[in-house]
Simulated assay, not measured.
Amino acid sequence: MRIVIAEDAALIREGLKSLLHAAGHVVVAAVENGDDLLDAVRTHAPDVSILDVRMPPTYADEGIQAAHALRLINPREPILVLSQIVSGRAAADLLSSGDGGIGYLLKDRVGNVEEFLSALDTIADGGQVIDPQVVRTLLRRRSLLDDLTPREIEVLALMAEGRTNTAIARALVVSDAAVAKHINRIFAKLGLGADETSHKRVRAVLTYLRQRQSWSDPSPPQTKNRRN
Results as ranks from 00 to 15, higher is better:
residue 1 M to T: 13
residue 1 M to P: 11
residue 7 E to Q: 07
residue 8 D to V: 11
residue 13 R to D: 08
residue 14 E to Y: 08
residue 15 G to T: 02
residue 16 L to W: 04
residue 17 K to I: 13
residue 18 S to M: 11
residue 20 L to E: 03
residue 20 L to D: 04
residue 21 H to C: 00
residue 28 V to C: 06
residue 29 A to Y: 10
residue 29 A to H: 09
residue 32 E to N: 11
residue 35 D to A: 14
residue 42 R to N: 06
residue 52 D to L: 03
residue 53 V to G: 03
residue 54 R to V: 13
residue 67 A to Q: 07
residue 68 H to K: 15
residue 69 A to E: 14
residue 80 L to Q: 07
residue 80 L to G: 02
residue 85 I to S: 10
residue 94 L to T: 05
residue 95 L to C: 02
residue 97 S to W: 03
residue 97 S to I: 03
residue 97 S to T: 06
residue 108 D to I: 09
residue 119 A to S: 12
residue 123 I to E: 01
residue 124 A to H: 05
residue 124 A to W: 04
residue 125 D to E: 13
residue 129 V to R: 12
residue 130 I to S: 06
residue 133 Q to P: 00
residue 135 V to Y: 10
residue 137 T to N: 15
residue 139 L to T: 11
residue 141 R to V: 02
residue 150 P to S: 01
residue 155 V to Y: 10
residue 161 E to S: 09
residue 163 R to W: 04
residue 165 N to S: 15
residue 166 T to G: 14
residue 167 A to W: 07
residue 172 L to M: 12
residue 173 V to C: 11
residue 190 L to S: 00
residue 191 G to V: 00
residue 201 R to G: 01
residue 207 T to Q: 15
residue 208 Y to S: 00
residue 213 Q to F: 12
residue 218 P to L: 06
residue 222 Q to W: 03
residue 224 K to Q: 13
residue 225 N to S: 14
